[in-house]
């Protein structure tokens, strides 16, 4: 089949689908409204938690004990994505707390196992994608290409393509797991990379 023939077939799809698309709403606006409400709700939950902790501390008047933690260097926590030729050096504290899954779109999702296994949400911390074309950092910064479907960070371009790290969109955890999720999520910026086919 050629594209013209496919276009003709598309021309004769269910009329209801065609009619629905005629009056498409502004989804982006609706989502932003919903996101703001969710952020406000989460902030309210956090504020309550902070207040209750402070109230508890005052009520019991316990001495504050300062613990000195001596960190013993351990082997670096590494995650190799062989299919796309990149290795991630993750925070050591993530050992045993994450897993990786790939989907049909070539996305490699890294998620928190404790959040997902407890049924408290998807727990996705970030995902890696390798784009087939070479995208310079300047293009990434200035152009609104296909790769910009979600917030992302430029990793590197090699002779085989470009690696981007995508931040999870949507809430990935229930409100009561937010602190736990946030602990890992804020360390995503510290992840480093080793790429096989650097230019």
């Amino acid at each position: 089949m050629n594209s013209k023939q496919l276009s003709e077939r598309i021309g004769n799809i269910d009329e209801l689908l065609i009619q629905q698309a005629e009056s498409v709403p502004n989804y982006g606006k609706a989502r932003r409204k919903h996101r703001v409400r969710r952020i406000v709700a989460t902030a309210a939950v956090l504020a309550l938690m902070v207040c209750s902790c402070a109230a508890g501390a005052l009520a019991f008047g316990q001495e504050t004990v300062i613990e000195t933690i001596v960190e013993v260097p351990v082997e670096q926590e590494m995650l190799e994505l062989k299919d796309i030729g990149i290795t991630l050096i993750l925070p050591d504290s993530w050992k045993g707390k994450y897993a990786m899954e790939a989907n049909e779109y070539g996305e490699y999702h890294v998620y928190s196992t404790s959040i997902r296994d407890a049924g408290k949400g998807g727990g996705i911390l970030f995902y890696i994608m390798k784009w087939g074309q070479q995208i310079t950092e300047e293009q990434w910064r200035n152009e609104d290409g296909e790769w910009n479907f979600a917030g992302n960070r430029y990793i590197m371009t090699t002779k085989d393509g470009t690696y981007l790290l995508y931040y999870a969109s949507d809430m990935q955890c229930a409100p009561d797991a937010y602190e736990e999720y946030r602990q890992m999520e804020k360390q995503v910026k510290d992840i480093r990379f080793i790429v096989d086919a650097a230019l």
Partner: peptide, 13 residues
């Protein structure tokens, strides 16, 4: 413009 999504997101979808 109609959907309120970025062009990048449209292209990706």
């Amino acid at each position: 413009i109609r959907t309120g999504y970025s062009e990048g997101k449209i292209k990706s979808v």
